[in-house]
Design a binder for these strands. Structure first.
Lengths: 207, 207
DNA sequence: ACAGTAGCTTACGTCAGCGTAGGTTTGAGG
DNA sequence: CCTCAAACCTACGCTGACGTAAGCTACTGT
């Protein structure tokens, strides 16, 4: 019963690099940064450990590359989605962009969600979301001011909106027989839009 | 320059246990489960490592106790909040309960938020939230059916709602000069309520 | 045919961190 | 004063995982 690595093709550097990124993404997604060992990634890629060091300098290096790529991916999609159209269209297209990212790259999504290395307070994804919400908050603040609402409440609504999308996205990936992204986006868009349109000038607690 | 532990009081077992839970919560909150060492907890508590093992059997043991307590805390508060009142009152009181938990026990909150040990797909908090959203989804499904809306969309709204609260809560703990919990709850309540009340029977994508 | 290089391997040094064995201090009660 | 138990400590064994040294293999071009 001796453990033998199946022999695998020799690959040119670029291809090996690409493969390691793929494999690494999968493993980091499944176990998180801390719990992942370089050995395991090497094993999955059917090569030996030093190769990983050759290409990425170590665990953090590989991780950084993976995260960077994923951030590019998702930010790119969302930026593209909100480039044109009415405010509500932009919202709904952003939701669709987010959902399709999440569906198409579940491992990347998981990596972004998880704890980053070195005791970071949150994963990359929550951090991105938070920043995004802050930006949305700035826009809302202006709009609220113009419309005579309490501008100090704008960040609340901005974070609520982003949180809504983030959470629905998570549900959407995990539920069996998920509805099409467009349907989800339409519902989320409706909820947000109707909610925001019908806000009282000064909300007060019930009872 | 020799490193010497300041001598500390001897404590009866119960008190030491309590102290270790406090200290452990703080350290786990700051570094996450994997990155925390038993040594560090012992050091912070001004005792030596084996004491931790005596009381909790190890890192996982201590962690489990801490998480369990926090879950009790937050679930208890929310259950109490939704015990009575109109639907909207319950919602707003649940938000207040959540926010005050988050504010009063930031370390506990952080522990629940972070990755659990052993490659769990998410932290305890997201898991709790997800379960909660599923429950809300069941309620919504019934309501939607009665009101002639598409019942299949109910989970979307339920998760949206919970996500909204979760995310706003996170923002609220981290923002400087946060508004009072009641104000936040009123805004979130208004957004959700107005949004849900004015939903079209069949939302469709804009454009 | 053979040199040179890209791709890869085995084997190791090192260290952090878990968990434990066994002994030491402190104080309370007879 | 002596016993005994609770609280605590020092010191160690061991594993897993990072990162590196040194050398092997197979392809490519002349």
């Amino acid at each position: 019963m001796l453990k033998r690595r199946e022999k695998s093709e020799r690959l040119p550097a670029a291809a090996r690099r690409a493969q390691l990124i793929e494999v690494g993404r999968a493993v980091f997604a499944k176990k998180g940064f801390e719990a992942t060992s370089v050995e395991e990634i090497a094993e999955q890629a059917k090569i030996s450990k030093p190769i990983v060091y050759e290409h990425f300098g170590g665990k953090e290096g590989l991780y950084a590359v993976i995260v960077d790529r994923e951030v590019e991916h998702i930010v790119g999609r969302i930026v593209e989605a909100v480039a044109t159209g009415s405010a509500r269209e932009r919202l709904e297209r952003a939701v669709i962009a987010y959902l399709s990212y999440v569906k198409e790259r579940p491992d990347g999504f998981a990596v972004l969600l998880r704890d980053a290395p070195s005791a970071a307070p949150r994963g990359e994804m929550p951090a991105l979301m938070y920043d995004l919400a802050d930006k949305v908050g700035d826009i809302f603040t202006q709009q609220f001011r113009d419309a005579g609402y309490d501008a100090k409440a704008a960040p609340i609504y901005a974070h609520a909106l982003v949180g809504m999308v983030a959470f629905v996205g998570q549900w959407w990936t995990e539920t069996r027989r998920p509805p099409p992204a467009e349907v989800v986006a339409a519902h989320v868009g409706a909820l947000a839009w109707m909610g925001l349109r019908h806000l009282p000038k000064k909300p007060t607690l019930q009872k």
